[in-house]
Nucleic acid binder design. Structure first.
Lengths: 216, 216
DNA sequence: CTCAAAATGTTGCATTTGCAACATATATAT
DNA sequence: ATATATATGTTGCAAATGCAACATTTTGAG
């Protein structure tokens, strides 16, 4: 078992993580690609931690239309309280995108003070806050993007975020189709806008490689 | 001091809250309406708790354009890790909308285990998770709304959320102008759409009173 | 390799929307 | 009460966008 790449356990040695598992009531389960990892129907006191593999949180509405709400990679955490709002009765599920393994921890056990030798419990709580904060940040970042009025402004705002992290030349971290879903724009209209932005000298595009041209 | 209405301290008696204050390094400050409560410039290890009054988180961009990111009422918490993404260098601040009092707690003190008689520490951590979860939920709800393609769909989705909570007849919890900002639509275009929805028999509007007509 | 499925790119057209420029109503301060 | 600022409602018009229909490329499974 490799805990070293899991942010939730950062700062806690593998041995200690192993010892902590029992008082968390942690369980491990493996899933084949395509399998349902969990179904949010109002049950969940559990937090899932992706040990390896990928999964997607999806919402299926009454018309059978499937929307991808979030993607989880190794180390990411998910759970009902962290789930997307599900005000109507649509089915929200986490589905394995590849073979994967998930650790489930009881939510209530994380917050409880631990009677055993869990010296690192507070570190875990702190890490958990950090992960939720990260998630909050990515949600608010998306709101910032969606609040832009035009597709061009949305793309530029998003590209500037990427450029700040990776430099003026970077690779899109997702497919064009997914990008269109992410910024909630029609895929063909977005492609049209990308061409137009290139024509206007704002960006250069080669496949997924983007170069953001600085304004002079 | 009234702690009874503050969700962060739910399940903890006023006396015990008072005792816990010292080990949190809590400080209290009062602000006049219009005063700056805090400025997010990368400092913050602090969480703010609104004891009474209202405040708004705002972003001011390079053109001096002010956008309201979030509103805080009594009991709400805010802090840098909970703040909106601020990728560009815009100034993000919390500004008092009325006279108010804010309690500041060191973030790191909440996660630390407490040596003193803070038997309720874990309850506090649990409450803190709950509050962050609530915030996450409201962010994702807004994303759901913004992801709708047309203004009509955005409004209907939002109205259905309100109808689920308050019944088919309810009052808008904000001004029309603020609603337009919330759903990121032009105010006049939104008003136009509201009229059109009323003409199409989807809703009835009287000032801020909305009645959602069920589809037959 | 071969084939099918998924992703990508392009375009015309109708609809939606932002924007500007108003008129009117309501709230707030003095 | 009066004045001033803010909120609300309306409309024409140009721009942006979703949508559909299609061609082409890339990916992935067998």
């Amino acid at each position: 078992m490799r805990f070293s790449k899991i942010d939730l356990f950062e700062g806690i040695s593998g041995d200690d993580v192993g010892k902590m598992m029992c008082c968390f009531g942690a369980t491990f389960r493996r899933f084949k690609a395509g399998a349902t990892v969990c179904d949010y129907a109002g049950d969940g006191d559990e937090v899932g931690v992706m040990m390896y593999g990928r999964a997607a949180m999806t919402r299926t509405d009454e018309d059978g239309e499937i929307a991808v709400l979030e993607l989880f990679d190794e180390g990411d955490i998910f759970g009902e309280v962290l789930a997307f709002a599900n005000e109507n009765g649509d089915s929200v599920r986490v589905v394995a995108e590849s073979d994967c393994e998930v650790m489930f921890i009881k939510y209530s056990q994380i917050t409880k003070r631990c009677e055993n030798a869990c010296a690192h419990h507070s570190r875990l709580v702190s890490n958990m806050f950090g992960l939720i904060a990260k998630k909050t940040l990515s949600l608010s970042r998306r709101i910032e993007i969606l609040s832009k009025k035009t597709t061009r402004e949305k793309l530029l705002y998003y590209f500037r975020i990427l450029a700040k992290r990776y430099g003026d030349e970077f690779y899109l971290p997702m497919s064009v189709t997914r990008l269109a879903e992410y910024i909630c724009a029609d895929r063909s209209a977005m492609t049209r806008e990308l061409s137009s932005m290139q024509a206007d000298g704002l960006i250069e595009l080669q496949k997924k490689k983007v170069r953001l041209i600085k304004a002079v």
